[in-house]
Design a protein around this nucleic acid. Structure first.
Lengths: 146, 146
DNA sequence: CTATATTCCGAGTGGAATAGTAGGGAATAT
DNA sequence: ATATTCCCTACTATTCCACTCGGAATATAG
């Protein structure tokens, strides 16, 4: 019951794009090297993120990827759901391929799984890539001050 | 990023034991048949739950399992963590076998995963098996009334 | 004492998912 | 032209999941 590397790598990479958002595009290779991820693997995530219109791409030298929107308009939830599908703590509830447990109307636990889904979603839908940028600056300034 | 059947089956089975808590022991076979689970598989969960001292067992005819404590003193969180290990939305944070991402002190996403872990835990640690019993009675009465 | 009902225990297994590799093709800035 | 970048599809090794199987230990009823 855990995020796969897809979600984790994806969020980290999107943060990288957020950092460079004003400057322009960033190449996959740079990000992969910087984060020490396999570039061929990260490529698959970028393909999904592009399909979901969270990033844009440009080929050729000086090409690369860029966020499709302002970092403050992209939530962590959008990124995670794009890469991992809808949050679905238990297979009974929340996703597309719901397992139908026959007595779901009587099931005493269904409500628990729904509550958990909601609580996860409310965390990830509240945080934007822009928030992460702010957080970094805060830490950066803190480090400078001390 | 989902509960395995272990957690789901486990909570359902523990609820069954909660229903029968006053009456005494319940055999694994009865629960497995009632819930339509594989009994040999459910057995493995009961072994864990027993090891974690959430249930007691008694062998021989008229034997079976029973909650080790009052249903109101067992949270869903205890059951889930016993069966699935600690809540760990991302492998960076929360569990035993933490993946060390080298720059974890600078990592902007770490805090997100911690928040998610906390929010899941606060849901499941708040609900007891006794609460589920109450919920069932409420639904039962509602059904009777209509 | 014996037959039976139950828990206990360890090992094995098929399929799905994860976490990648590999390799070539297409666009484009210089 | 050519180097650089994205684009696309297929393949693979490993791990995890959801079981299955066989039998031993133990308690109860008759």
């Amino acid at each position: 019951m855990r995020l796969s590397t897809k979600g984790r790598y994806g969020v980290m990479a999107m943060y990288r794009l957020a950092v460079n958002y004003e400057a322009g595009t960033t190449s996959l290779k740079d990000i992969a090297e910087d984060l020490d991820y396999s570039d061929a693997y990260l490529e698959q995530m970028f393909a999904i993120l592009k399909r979901e219109r969270l990033i844009t791409s440009h080929r050729g030298p000086k090409g690369g990827y860029r966020l499709a929107k302002n970092p403050y308009d992209i939530t962590i939830g959008e990124v995670i759901r794009a890469l991992e599908g809808p949050i679905e703590f238990s297979s009974c509830v929340g996703g597309t391929e719901n397992y139908d447990c026959k007595r779901s109307s009587l099931c005493v636990t269904k409500e628990i799984w729904e509550k958990i889904n909601d609580s996860i979603n409310s965390v990830i839908d509240y945080i934007t890539l822009g928030d992460l940028l702010d957080k970094y600056n805060k830490n950066f300034n803190k480090a400078k001050r001390s």
